[in-house]
Computed example of a mutant assay.
Amino acid sequence: MTSSTGVGAGASSRRRHRSPDVVRMVLVDDHAMLRQGLRSVLEREEDLTVVGEAASQAEAEAVVRAVAPDVVVLDLKLSASSDYDGLSLCAKLSAAHDGIGLLVLTTFLNDELVVRAVHAGARGYVVKDVDTTELVRAIRAISAGESAFDAHSAAALVRSMNCHTAPRERLTHREQEVLRLLAIGLSNAKIGERLFISSTTVKFHVKNILRKLGVAGRAEAVYEANKQGLI
């Protein structure tokens, strides 16, 4: 019998025979019925498939390690005994899996949580009352390396950006080039191809951009750069 968490035989079969255009997702939520409902809704789309589920942080880390999904859709609160352990999970997955798409899907919405999620590595944040069309659009955007925020969370992120001071150092010409490509959602590898430099060099430039802008993540860097008129 297949467990309610982890990877089922159906998911394994789809991985072996999937189209390269199919977005592979892991769902992380401590409510089994919500995961089942979300899976049913998302898999109506031909380009989306759920390859794993998890109810806790530990299960999520194991499943993501096993199936290497394109996108992880996760709640912020995964247990009654822990406050917003989804933030910790975001940070761990972001650090362990370079380029993974993390989309927060939660009932919690306040400015601080949106900013903390972005700092932890999330590239998107939507609340659970969004309609299916908006959620699917967000998942596709995250899979493509872009950011995806609903109207409320985007406004919260912009408000937080208004509290930041200007960068202490000017961006170099190369860093500005990298930043413009970050803004259209390109990965480090794609940026390297465009600029004829290695992905390691791109990663170095991205690190400097984040430091100079005083931010912790790529999505936040794009917002800050837009605010300052850099892109």
Rank of each mutant, 00 (worst) to 15 (best):
R39K: 15
P20M: 13
G52A: 11
D30M: 01
V28T: 00
D21N: 05
G37T: 00
V51G: 01
D29A: 00
V28S: 02
V23D: 10
V22H: 14
V26H: 06
D29E: 04
H31E: 06
S19Y: 00
D47H: 06
D21F: 02
V51R: 02
P20H: 15
V23T: 15
D47Q: 12
E45I: 02
D29G: 01
L42D: 10
L34I: 12
V28E: 03
Q36P: 01
V51P: 00
R44G: 06
H17V: 14
D21M: 01
E45W: 04
H31I: 02
R24F: 07
S40A: 14
P20T: 14
G37H: 04
M33T: 10
R24C: 13
G52V: 11
R24S: 15
M25W: 07
Q36E: 11
E45R: 12
V41W: 04
H17L: 09
E43V: 05
V28L: 08
R24H: 13
D29F: 02
R18T: 12
E43I: 07
R39A: 11
V23R: 05
E45L: 00
S19T: 03
R39T: 14
V23Y: 07
R18N: 15
E43P: 10
M33K: 09
V26G: 08
T49M: 12
L48D: 04
E45C: 11
P20E: 15
L27V: 06
M25F: 00
A32N: 07
M33E: 14
L42I: 12
